[in-house]
């Protein structure tokens, strides 16, 4: 669970918000000429990153307004909240050292911590 700082109402529990998925996907304007592949890209394909992710939220049980948020999907750290139509701000995040590794703290996945090649001799991480 996390607490989200709504730009209009302040800090509220996650359960007050509804999720709008990946941000900054706009419907293509030239839709008549689009191929099926381009449609599939717009409708279905998603970035789904392990790391910094721009997403939309709606404060459904509050001001009922939409806003954007940057969150680290590897740790659930909320990095920035910004308005609809705005560009995501620059942020720093506690990212995994390897593509599918775990962040230093906060991932909750203690069975599969990052293994550096140099650490492999002592058995790597893990509980």
């Amino acid at each position: 669970m996390f607490v989200i700082k709504c730009p209009n109402c302040g800090e509220r529990d996650l359960s007050e918000f509804s999720y709008g998925g990946e941000a900054h996907i706009s419907r293509p304007e030239w839709r008549d000429e689009m191929s099926d592949t381009e449609w599939a890209e717009f409708v279905f394909m998603r970035t789904n990153p392990k790391g910094v992710f721009a997403e939309r939220w709606n404060h459904a049980a509050g001001c009922r307004r939409w806003f954007n948020m940057l969150r680290n999907t590897a740790t659930d750290d909320i990095l920035a909240v910004y308005g609809m139509g705005e560009e995501p701000p620059e942020v720093t995040a506690n990212l995994p050292a390897t593509p599918s590794g775990e962040a230093a703290i906060g991932s909750g996945n203690d069975e599969a911590k990052v293994i550096d090649a140099g650490d492999a001799a002592d058995g790597g991480g893990g509980a």
Partner: peptide, 20 residues
């Protein structure tokens, strides 16, 4: 790789319709 399917596909420049 279940949860990390998108992460692995990204290594070969492939985008998938899955979300974790």
């Amino acid at each position: 790789t279940a949860a990390h399917t998108s992460v692995m596909a990204n290594m070969v420049g492939l985008r998938l319709p899955v979300e974790s």
